Simulated scan of single mutants.
Amino acid sequence: MIEQNVTDETEGKDPLIFGRILDGKGGARPIRREDVDAWEPEAPGELLWLHLRRHAPEVKPWLVDYLGVPQATSELLVSDSTRPRALREGDALVATLRGINFNPSAQPEDMISLQLWCDGKRLITLRKLPMQTPRDVIALLDQGVGPVDAGNAIAQIVEQLVVRMNQSMVDMNDKIDELEEADLEGDAEELLHRISSIRRNCLSLQRHMAPQHEALLQINRDAPEWFEDHDRREVLESIARLRRYLDDIDISKESALVLQDELRARSLASSEHATYMLTIVAGIFLPLGFITGLMGINVGGMPGVDAGNGFWIVTGLCAAILSLQLFLFWKWKWL
């Protein structure tokens, strides 16, 4: 079998991850690397699908010298420029697409690029990091219910790429729902960090998914003749689904922004209330401090000193001032 789990020692050396010959009936059979260069269809409707490691040193020479891919196209396929796009080159379709990164320790917004080239008889896909989408399609082929032609294969790859984005949308919406139901009186700094993280994720996903939407539209408009009408309809379904995901991202961004504004407003209100209370307390004790300071200076002849009841006079005066202040603050609705 060509397809197998690749160890770190072999990753990056062998350009071929797997190879399949689609039989045109939903099934496929493996093909060895040494048989790829001389491959010719043995029956009508057969399609050669090669899934390659983009960063392997042998990939570019193999594409140009043995698989007949034009030099300029091969440079595009192995390039690190992975912004989603699609173009037609004669009777071939060239595209760069992106999928959610589900590799360990990776963030979903760290999307993985998938380059593809197809002339209707051969389909070549390339990736740098492991991704599940091609293996999902391979699993369908092994069950005999996979794509039956080149257009159908591309449509299913596109569908799997888009469908897998749904889990990231669900996870992100769950986080927002959790924050909306949470007590916003908790640790404001932690909550703001979580909300900011959600907003960054939304922006990152949108940055990759918006051009992917345009790339899929380009595939649907300009695909060669071997891309049949039913394949275009499947791509249109994927485009509509991706459009809904983009709308969900916009809603998630707005929800996160509302939460962030509410949290900041509550923090500001709490800070203002504390400042207000400190101002009230200062306003109460300022005149009292002035009176006690004035009466406490060590100067002969101060009123009440000789009578021996100066302390009670000052205390009574302070009590009167305090009562008057509290009455006025209550009347002015400061308290």
Rank of each mutant, 00 (worst) to 15 (best):
K121P: 15
S196Q: 11
A188S: 14
C202Y: 01
I176E: 04
P134S: 10
E228A: 11
L116E: 02
V158L: 06
I219N: 07
L242M: 07
S197N: 13
G144W: 02
W226I: 00
Q206H: 12
I195M: 06
A155G: 05
I112P: 08
V162Q: 01
N166C: 07
I157Y: 03
R200M: 14
R127Q: 06
M169N: 06
V137S: 01
A210F: 14
Q115M: 07
G146M: 04
L236C: 10
P211S: 14
G120T: 00
E214N: 02
Q115L: 02
A182L: 07
L205Y: 03
E180L: 11
E237G: 09
E237N: 12
D187R: 10
R244G: 06
P130C: 12
I154C: 04
R135A: 13
R164N: 11
D119G: 06
E189C: 10
K128P: 07
L191D: 15
L242T: 03
Q167V: 08
L205P: 03
L236F: 07
Q107I: 02
Q167F: 05
L161P: 02
A155W: 01
L114F: 03
D222V: 09
L123V: 00
T133C: 08
A153R: 04
L216C: 06
G146D: 01
D142M: 11
I195S: 09
E181A: 12
L191R: 15
E109S: 04
D183E: 14
Q156S: 01
H213T: 15
P130R: 12
Y245C: 00
R241Q: 15
E109M: 04
L203H: 14
L116P: 10
R127Y: 08
R199N: 13
D174M: 04
H193Y: 13
D177N: 15
Q206C: 12
D136F: 06
N166E: 11
S105A: 11
M165H: 15
H213I: 14
G151N: 05
D149P: 07
I198V: 13
L236Q: 14
A182V: 02
K121M: 10
Q167P: 06
D110N: 11
L126T: 01
D229G: 02
V162D: 01
N173Y: 08
A210W: 09
A106V: 09
V170T: 14
R200S: 14
I176F: 04
L114A: 04
Y245P: 05
D136G: 08
S197G: 15
E190P: 07
Y245A: 02
